[in-house]
């Protein structure tokens, strides 16, 4: 199969994601206004902003969970259009972790992890299980493989969700508030997993309000407000001296 991996032109393109002039409306509500973003391979972005500012919508546009109406989104050299084939190709390259984990409750942890590799990538069950166990060890819960998601703690469930995405060997990982549904003690174990993923060089987009994580991991912080990207700067600059009024206000609110 022809993929970006073995075509030299595309390898030369260092861009993982390119969003140009993206606009989106929910009915009359203008939720993304002329968003322009370029993310190179291996970059880590933290996206923050007040509630309803369009953070989720933006990252959900990247893997086609929401359709944008104007502008272009190019992911790993594939332009996201309505063509289902393109959408599926992008989804195979992009993993996503949700606020509420969205594990499949009727399947065991191991089955959650092997489902997509077996049915989408057509791996044999044995290979898929090997990969699954590898990633379960990576998120440090290999002993939970045969339990059902309902029997795990929130933090464990979120780590399973991360492992489930990783099993498809994505090149980009999207995180939508992965820790905000967790009890405080469990936030750290999930953040640790994400930090170790970042150290491995994964391209990551995280919507999160964990400022410690942003400081430690982010290459860039994207601040959104009312559907617009208002400020993009390095974490030092952003947390030290935010330029935009809204960003200043926002930081003063969440840091207290």
């Amino acid at each position: 199969m022809l993929t970006a991996q073995n075509t030299p032109e595309l390898m030369a393109d260092p861009m993982a994601i390119r969003m140009v002039g993206v606009n989106k409306w929910f009915g009359a509500l203008h939720v993304l206004r002329d968003v322009n973003l370029e993310i190179t391979r291996g970059q880590k972005l933290v996206i923050c902003g007040p509630s309803g500012s369009g953070k989720s919508t933006m990252i959900r546009c990247i893997n086609g969970l929401e359709a944008h109406q104007e502008g272009t989104i190019v992911v790993e050299g594939t332009e996201l259009t309505e063509d289902l084939k393109k959408v599926n190709e992008i989804r195979r390259n992009v993993g996503m972790v949700f606020q509420h984990f969205n594990l499949f409750p009727h399947l065991t942890v191991l089955e959650n992890l092997t489902l997509a590799p077996v049915w989408v990538k057509k791996l044999s069950r044995r290979d898929a299980e090997e990969i699954a166990m590898h990633y379960l060890s990576k998120v440090r819960i290999p002993e939970q493989a045969n339990k059902y998601p309902g029997q795990l703690s929130g933090g464990q469930q979120q780590r399973v969700a991360i492992a489930r995405s990783l099993c498809m060997s994505p090149r980009i990982m999207l995180f939508d508030e992965p820790t905000s549904a967790l009890d405080p003690e469990m936030v750290k174990e999930v953040l640790d997993t994400m930090i170790s993923l970042a150290t491995d060089g994964m391209t990551m987009l995280c919507v999160t309000h964990e400022m410690g994580f942003a400081r430690q991991v982010a290459d860039l912080v994207v601040f959104m407000d009312h559907g617009q990207v208002v400020e993009v700067s390095g974490p030092e600059a952003f947390f030290g001296s935010p330029k935009h009024e809204r960003a200043k206000l926002f930081l003063s609110q969440i840091l207290h």
């Binding site: 893997n63 086609g64 969970l65 599926n88 996503m96 969205n102 489902l115 049915w119 995405s165």
Partner: peptide, 8 residues
């Protein structure tokens, strides 16, 4: 959404 994001 989880199923879609895995490419199913």
């Amino acid at each position: 959404e989880a199923a879609a994001s895995l490419g199913l």
